[in-house]
Design a protein around this nucleic acid. Structure first.
Lengths: 246, 246
DNA sequence: CATCTTATATCTTATACAAGAGTTGGCGAT
DNA sequence: ATCGCCAACTCTTGTATAAGATATAAGATG
């Protein structure tokens, strides 16, 4: 009775999704749509199960996957909560640069520039039309008292209306989620070592030609669409980028 | 009856491990000890369950975790197999450098040097005594026809007896597993951008001072002990290092 | 104010059945 | 008699569900 979906098409296995994955999709969509907001507690597993008319174990398996993706946080005896980008664990999910000889810390930011306009290269990266409006934010970040990262962040203007006229906070991904309903789910980064150009060197306080770590990041929202393109140039003389291979 | 372990100590919760995790530990140990070798098929879930006197679902949950850690590979209808380092998926688990404009490929290697002796710095990284013997392997790797990576690999000599007198293959982690019973479970890498020194520049065919990506990797065996320290210097003018953030 | 009870959340374990993948053996055509 | 095909069998992992254990916090109780 529960497997009607798989028998609708001609071939049973084509287009079939397990029940727990369908449940997962429903729950993810609710978070993406802001029905359940960051930090908020979800209904209990039995409640969700009753509402969707599945067994609690199936809901649980859906939440297992979402936990593995850092989308929700579970606490036994308390409940299940939508992951928030200011939790210590989630904060460093997307910030991989740490000082060589001290504990992990979150950097300060100073905005250099914030404009909007046509930008074919960024539009292409973000999967937009060549003439779609793109927001471009330049800023410099400070780690352990030293100017350390110079970055350019490109966003689809359509998704972030009014961002230009706003005070830009340090924690961008929290802003995206709270004010614009855009939750970053994952990102893929490409790293290179490059030589500092004149302007870059000046901003970071290093000599021209000095090696910098160039991090090219494309970040995706919960519905798997690219929503941020970011290129960061990092001094790595007193810090390093960490990557865990499992 | 199954929870005796938790009642032995004063506090119930201290030192208590769920049954499925105990099963996981047993299975991991069997792989680590070579009882089940790379590529080999494990007994079926019901068989393992009967042998350990737990329910199949418990074995299954243990294998779920091991699958997530890339330790085993499951194939519906076929069986569960110990992960092998020449499977396409596992191969690139530990090799993150890919050419800018072509498909992923695995590099060739040419050994420059292989020695053994005292090396306090490497010994410290590997958690050995300062005077324990360390193997040091220098080699250069070629990607898409271009000398691309210059790396130094340090190993505890005690774990790899006779490695010095042996032909060193391209795929080291497969060698560790097959010939020395050492399976790499995970690794943590620290990345920096550095300037090429004279010798480095010569080996890689770049100018002195050219930016290189320096990857400092510590790799751990299944029992969580560091067994390989590797520093790789990479040209990134035609390749990049990828990192997925989830 | 400390302790116990209770309600409710997640966590663990168990069981039944479905789906995928070889293997085997029957059966007909050649 | 032999080859090829296909159905049935049997083994595997995958999915769905349910019941009891454990953890947490709030309220009752002394």
């Amino acid at each position: 009775m529960k497997h009607d979906a798989m028998h609708m098409a001609g071939k049973p296995t084509l287009g079939f999704r397990p029940l727990y994955r369908q449940v997962r999709d429903i729950l993810v969509k609710r978070i993406a749509d802001g029905v359940w907001q960051a930090g908020q507690m979800l209904p209990s597993e039995p409640e969700i199960a009753a509402e969707l008319d599945v067994s609690p174990g199936t809901v649980r398996k859906a939440l297992d996957e979402m936990t593995a993706e850092n989308l929700v946080v579970r606490r036994q005896g308390r409940g299940t909560f939508v992951a928030k980008h200011d939790d210590a664990r989630i904060l460093f999910q997307f910030f991989k640069l740490i000082p060589d000889s001290s504990v992990r810390e979150f950097p300060d930011s100073k905005v250099l520039n914030l404009t909007s306009g046509i930008n074919p290269e960024a539009a292409s990266q973000l999967g937009l039309g060549r003439r779609d409006c793109v927001l471009v934010l330049d800023r410099i970040r400070t780690l352990a008292g030293q100017a350390c990262v110079l970055e350019r962040i490109c966003l689809p203007a359509a998704l972030f209306p009014g961002l230009e006229k706003r005070e830009v906070p340090n924690n961008l991904y929290q802003l995206y989620a709270m004010e614009f309903g855009v939750t970053i789910g994952h990102a893929s980064e490409k790293l290179k070592a490059v030589a500092a150009t004149g302007e870059e060197a000046q901003h970071l306080g290093v000599a021209v030609g000095e090696p910098l770590l160039r991090v090219d990041r494309l970040a995706f929202s919960l519905d798997q669409r690219p929503v941020e393109w970011r290129v960061s140039l990092c001094r790595t003389d007193q810090a390093h980028y960490i990557s865990d291979l499992r």
